[in-house]
Amino acid sequence: MKISKLIKKAETYARSDELKRKEKKKYLKKVIKKLRKHEDKLRQEYDSCTDFEKSRQLKQEIALAYNQRKKGVKILKSLKKKKRDRD
């Protein structure tokens, strides 16, 4: 295979990789946004909750959504970093 063809192939591959990353970022942002909304809703519920068991559960759910969101943000950052490294 000629060098120019090889470069062209590599470029196409990199472009499709970049496209996939962009798509992933888009969907990830959407889910993170949903988790944040969910978290806010739970916090409001928690603030007005008087039942001990229920508030324990809510606290747990808030922590869970927070940690899942944190995980999402971490993945998002690593995706952005990958892009920077490539550039």
Partner: peptide, 24 residues
């Protein structure tokens, strides 16, 4: 399908759950 794949990657692993519990 794409969102589902993201959901899967955000689900906490056993270690992450334990860590979360400990930190709580």
């Amino acid at each position: 399908l794409r969102t589902k794949s993201i959901e899967q990657s955000l689900s906490l692993s056993d270690e992450e759950l334990t860590e979360m519990m400990h930190s709580q």
